[in-house]
Design a protein around this nucleic acid. Sequence first.
DNA 1: TAATCGTTATGATAATTTATCATAACGATT
DNA 2: AATCGTTATGATAAATTATCATAACGATTA
Lengths: 114, 114
Amino acid sequence: MEPKLNVWLEVEGEVMLSVWRVELLTAVSQTGSISAAAVHMGVPYRIAWQKIHEMESRLGQKLVETQTGGKHGGGASLTPLAQDYIDRFTQISQELDAVLQERFQAIFLPDAPE
Amino acid sequence: MEPKLNVWLEVEGEVMLSVWRVELLTAVSQTGSISAAAVHMGVPYRIAWQKIHEMESRLGQKLVETQTGGKHGGGASLTPLAQDYIDRFTQISQELDAVLQERFQAIFLPDAPE
DNA sequence: TAATCGTTATGATAATTTATCATAACGATT
DNA sequence: AATCGTTATGATAAATTATCATAACGATTA
């Protein structure tokens, strides 16, 4: 049995940011395009694009700058705001993960051998 | 914007216990029947019954004792094991909630007035 | 200046999941 | 033997989510 955790930020009851979405944004940053990020996340391009637009719509600000056309067809990069959200969210998420592991050990497996 | 959290326990990749499911079990305990618990949770009886059986199936042990027939038609009560899981899970869940609130304040709203 | 390229953008459809509806079975009590 | 509100479960509907297919973009290149 394993404990699981999800953290997310809501705006007016709808998901704006989550662990998965932060991964997606990070992948956009690292690959330079939404389509490559989609491959990296194992979902169709459509899904990745949709999630990004959901995030932007719910936040009311741009998170991803996109370009169509050009030699390489275009691409995408993160706004500084997006990187800021990634950093803060990741910090909270990691801290909660650590607490969960520790507390699960203590409360469900208190007599585990050293 | 508000931070949200979900915690759950998985067995072989499937949800065995979650915040919602603990609420459901608690409602069964308080009302004495699955049907009344379903009303309390705002879902059809079928859903409540199904979730309970999922939990039992995935845990491999009984969580709810049920009776059909009788003057009042039957009823349901929790096994001691179920109560034990409720107690431990609730403890973890509440602690994580507290940490989330505190960390969100610190990381996203560091300059809030006292 | 027109063809090229891989990307963004989006409509339409399919699949999966989840919820709802309806009905049978139960059995102590009366 | 009839009654009652419950448990149990099959069948269907709704909602959500994912997939497929295609159009639009535009700097670069020849």
